[in-house]
Amino acid sequence: MSLLNRVKSLPNGFVWGGATAAYQVESSTKVAGKGKTMWDDYLKAQGRFSPDPASDFYNRYPEDIALSKKYGLNSIRVSIAWTRIFPKGYGEPNQEGVAYYHRLFKECLDRGLEPYVSLHHFDSPQTLFEDGDWLNRKNIDYFVDYAEFCFKEFTEVKKWFTINELISLAYSQYIQGNFPPNHHFDVTSGIQAQHNELVAHARVVNLYKKLGLPGRIGLIHVIQPIYPIDNAPENVHAAKLQDAFMNKFLLDGTFLGYYSDDTMESINEILRLNDAHLEIEDGDLDILAEAAPQNDFFGMNY
């Protein structure tokens, strides 16, 4: 029996939504004071893809929101382009960008769609990217400042995500090499970026709760099941290591607030085999532990 035949109704309060990411849909990357992201110069040099015009959500969002409502959605996930608010990732806010997101959120609410808003969806500011992106601890401070501004400014938003798909960033940037800076099998950077993203997420969650805001906050992981190709012990063990790197390390840090012994046994083996290292600073695990029980929800992409 198909799923559609078995599901006759949805529970009260069910949220039926769609999702977008600012850089993937907005276009208008050079207007209204917007700063560059890590993708702008990279895509121009690559010469294969352009963020302009994309689906022109920046200009056509009223039409898109109307279509969302027409086809039965009651929510939509969008992301804020960090560089529309802070063109360099820090400094004085760009009021044109602030005004745009107020208009977007109002349109959502006026149409009866609740906005679920991501603060970071694969689009670090170019200035911060050039300065190490998530590998630079100072950039975590800038992310927290940006988040605090958004929480206090966009009071119409009651559902927040910190970072979208932490592993997709770390793996694609430093292991697979299909996101800038295109490193391949840079295991030190790949695992350090995961940890630093977790610290950034946790600091923002802790801030949100300290502000006493009447909303909910979480993050989005992409879960990637890992299976051995057969039952050979070496392949079973290889799958266990891959699962730790892709899933367990991030899930432990998010929801346990620490890295379990089993997870760290695998991570340390990966580090040893690749002559790599991970730096966990004093206080990091306290930050993770404080945030872990305060996550209100969990976005799972699969």
Rank of each mutant, 00 (worst) to 15 (best):
K152F: 05
F245K: 11
H237G: 03
I80F: 12
Q24L: 06
S68A: 13
A32G: 04
L219Q: 06
P93T: 11
P225H: 06
R77W: 01
S266C: 15
F185V: 09
D284R: 09
I287W: 03
I229Q: 13
E26H: 03
I167E: 11
Y227K: 13
P233I: 08
V199D: 07
Y302M: 13
A170T: 07
G91D: 10
N59S: 13
S2Q: 13
Y100Q: 03
I226T: 02
K69G: 14
N295Y: 09
L285G: 01
Q95N: 15
Q176P: 02
P214S: 09
G177F: 07
D145H: 07
L251W: 07
I140H: 04
G283K: 00
Q192L: 03
E279M: 14
L288P: 02
D282E: 07
K34I: 02
I220V: 15
D145F: 05
I65G: 11
A238W: 00
P293I: 07
P115A: 10
T188Q: 03
G257F: 00
G89M: 04
H237L: 08
V15F: 10
D252F: 00
L271C: 14
A239W: 00
I217H: 02
E265K: 14
E153T: 04
I287A: 13
S118E: 09
F49I: 12
P11M: 04
T162W: 01
G112L: 06
R111D: 05
N268R: 14
D64L: 11
V7D: 14
E63M: 07
V98W: 01
R60M: 08
Y142M: 06
G112T: 02
R84P: 04
L198V: 12
S9E: 09
Y227G: 06
D133L: 01
Q176E: 06
P125F: 06
A22Q: 05
K152N: 13
H121Y: 14
Q173R: 15
L285V: 15
H121E: 14
L119Y: 08
G257I: 02
K70D: 01
R272T: 12
N206H: 08
D243P: 02
D286Q: 13
Y116K: 00
